[in-house]
Structures are given as structure tokens and as C-alpha cells.
Computed example of a mutant assay.
Amino acid sequence: MHQRLIARLQAVSGLAQEELAVLNALPHTVRKLDDRESILKEGDGAFTCVVLISGFLYRRKIVGDRSQILSLHVPGDIPDLMTLYLPTMDHDLISVGQSIVGTVPHAALRAMFDKQPSLVHTFWRETLIDAAIFRHWVGNLGALDALHRVAQLFCELAVRLEFVGLLNRGSFAFPLTQADIGSACGLSTVHTNRTLQALRRRGLLEWRGEMVTLPNRGELEALADFNADYLQRSSKSA
């Protein structure tokens, strides 16, 4: 757990040696999750926070008869950090493919903040970046066509996985389905398939099994008009 969490925080905030020591000592319980297994459901009370160690998670909201993916989470993320102050879930948190998480008691996090107050600002920054990603997704849903929405999603994931050392020559593990992409981007499965085929024809996306490759990432970012500033890479990690 510590490796991915620290890589994530180093990428966006930078960490002092004393902060690293406290984070490395953070107690946690490892839990393995199957594909589509729920960690928390809407209405549940939370007493721990989840740090994603490997795999993917997504937040989901059921609206009427539609399942909407609200966000995707990669290793190093803490997707339920808000439960420190908002302990009742207003959405579901679900594993995509097999994943491994570390659960950290709220009490342990609060004790860590008492011992190393500077980390309060680091974790608060995480919630602000999370909110920035939400805003970016909402803006994309309202303003972009299908090709740009899907291209932006892959560009974003590449940056976030690069933060934690999980982007290898433009390739990364990707257990999501076309239906998942459609749910995240507000598209039907048929429209999603057409959009993915368009990216393939342009030589910007390869997707085989559970592995995605971006053969020309710069060209994909140009097509998507992608600007990663909202992900807040720290100058200390560049």
C-alpha cells in the first residue's frame, strides 16, 4: 500500500523525509476484491478509508434505471477520503477486475495527522484534485463530442498511471469494458464502440484483452485537446 500511495503523493505534492516515515508506518489491512465486488454501497457508513494498491475502482451512482460511473481510480488513490468527514456514502465504490486495497481506520489517519500536521494539507490537496477531476469530467460530458470524451479519458488515465509507475512505453493494464467506458463518458455501448474504432483507425489506440497501448500519445493528446494541468503534477516530481 505504502509504495503506491507515496508515489501518488510524491507526484502531486512532494514529501519530506519525516512525512515519508509517518506514511510508511500507517497501519492497514489488505483486502482482495473480485471483479464488480462492492467495497461500499450508497447509504453505508464508513469507518475506514481505502487505498488502492493494484487494479481499478470506480464510483457509481444509480440514477433511475441508468448506472453512471462518476470516476475511475488507479493505484495510489484514496477514493473515499471524504468519509473522514462525510461518513455516509452517497454512491457505490466498486472493483473493476481483480484488485487489492488497503483499508486504513479513520482513527489511524487522524492520529497520523496529529503526529504530522503537514500531512493534513497533503491529504486536503488530494480531495481538491479529486474535485478538479470531477469538474473536468462534468465539463467534458456537457461540452465535448464522443471522440473527444473518450480520447480525454485515455489521456487522463495515462498521466495518472504514469504518476505511480504503471505506464510502460505507452501501455497499461485496463480491465474495463466498452460498456464501462460508455457509462463514464455518457455514451451508449454502440456509440462507444464506434468511437474506439475511430481511434484505432487513426493509429492512436490499441486494445487487446486487458491491455491498452497508446502508440502516439502526443498525437492523441493533440486530438483530445488535452491539458493535464488539472491533475496537478508537482514540480518536485517532474
Rank of each mutant, 00 (worst) to 15 (best):
M1C: 06
H2F: 08
Q3H: 15
R4W: 05
I6G: 01
A7G: 08
L9R: 00
L20E: 05
V22L: 14
L26A: 07
L26W: 14
P27L: 04
P27T: 04
S38V: 08
G43C: 13
A46P: 03
A46W: 11
F47R: 09
C49I: 15
S54D: 15
G55A: 03
I62P: 14
G64H: 09
D65N: 13
I69Y: 01
M89W: 08
M89T: 04
I94M: 11
S95Y: 12
T103G: 11
R110F: 07
M112H: 01
D114G: 13
W124H: 14
R125K: 15
E126W: 02
I129G: 08
I129S: 02
D130N: 11
I133M: 08
R135A: 11
A143R: 14
L144H: 12
D145N: 03
H148A: 11
H148N: 07
R149D: 01
L153C: 14
L153Y: 14
F154G: 00
L157R: 03
L161P: 00
E162N: 10
V164R: 03
L166T: 05
L166Q: 13
S171M: 05
S171E: 05
S171A: 02
S171W: 05
G182T: 04
T189R: 15
R194F: 03
R194K: 12
T195V: 02
R200L: 13
R202V: 09
M211Q: 15
V212L: 06
V212M: 05
T213I: 01
E221H: 03
A222H: 10
Q232D: 07
S234R: 09
S235A: 15
